[in-house]
């Protein structure tokens, strides 16, 4: 066991690199996913058919084909004729993660916007606020806190999905885990270490997202401030900000999408 630890310490620089690559994939993918989500989410609720239909098709396409297929396609097929597009592996990973989870997240965006009370839209129209203004100042501030918990779930899914990167020659956390196993020849030790690293990354991201959620809810006037929550005073709402561990990492994208009737 002390041998294992020695190997582990020796490999610490690689571990740092692996975590860095996983984080790059996660954050890059998340930013792209967010862009995709809002573009397709708004596109899906557009009035004009030529914006709505393509958005729906793209969403269904990326949701319908698997992430594995998408990432492999980008990496193994795209460099071939007739495409001849050779992407950097990191770009491949970010692109696949961003498009795939962006498609799911667009359903969250659409669903959350649709679930803001109809009266809010009507009041904004009655005050003659312009369509952009309605969305920016009235609807989005109310839809955003609804989106965050579902985005949190998707973000954890994205971290987990990023493990595929090891198969497109990236030296991420998954790759490191395998490396550690080859060095120590101890499967249980190295995979426990690897999984724990993933767990810690997911846990920290969840904490950050929960903080974001508390803040958004507080801005909406429906929750305590972040400071109140962190003080760990017995505030009633701590239960629903998820004090214990990552929130359910479910495919809640569909939950978001189903809010609209």
């Amino acid at each position: 066991m002390s041998d294992n630890l020695q190997q582990f310490v020796d490999l610490l620089p690689q571990l740092g690199e692996g975590i860095l690559v996983t984080l790059q994939l996660t954050l890059g993918g998340a930013v792209l996913a967010l862009l995709v989500a809002f573009t397709l989410g708004f596109g899906s609720r557009a009035h004009t058919r030529w914006a709505r239909v393509p958005s729906r098709v793209v969403v269904e396409f990326f949701r319908g084909t698997s992430l594995v297929v998408q990432i492999f396609w980008l990496y193994y097929v795209l460099p071939l004729p007739p495409f001849y597009v050779e992407l950097d592996p990191l770009a491949c990973g970010i692109l696949a993660l961003g498009l795939n989870y962006g498609a799911y997240a667009s359903e969250v965006v659409r669903g959350s916007i649709n679930s803001v009370a109809k009266g809010q839209w009507e009041a904004a129209i009655a005050l003659d606020l312009s369509p952009v203004h309605r969305l920016r100042r009235v609807i989005m501030p109310q839809a955003w806190p609804l989106m965050i918990p579902m985005f949190t779930n998707l973000l954890i899914q994205l971290v987990k999905g990023s493990a595929l990167a090891a198969y497109i020659s990236l030296h991420d956390l998954n790759f490191f885990t395998n490396e550690l196993r080859e060095r120590t020849s101890d499967t249980i030790f190295s995979y426990t270490v690897g999984l724990l690293c993933y767990f810690v990354v997911a846990y920290l991201l969840t904490l950050a997202m929960n903080a974001l959620e508390v803040r958004a809810k507080n801005r909406l006037g429906t929750g305590p401030t972040l400071r109140e929550v962190l003080r760990l005073a017995p505030v009633q709402t701590t239960a629903d900000v998820g004090a214990g561990g990552p929130a359910p990492a479910a495919t809640t994208a569909s939950k978001g999408g189903d809010r609209d009737g």
């Binding site: 009266g119 809010q120 009507e122 009041a123 904004a124 009655a126 501030p141 801005r219 429906t222």
Partner: peptide, 13 residues
């Protein structure tokens, strides 16, 4: 034209 609604519809944010 202005309107007051049955459900108030104030902006909570």
């Amino acid at each position: 034209v202005g309107m007051v609604f049955q459900q108030f519809n104030l902006f909570p944010n």
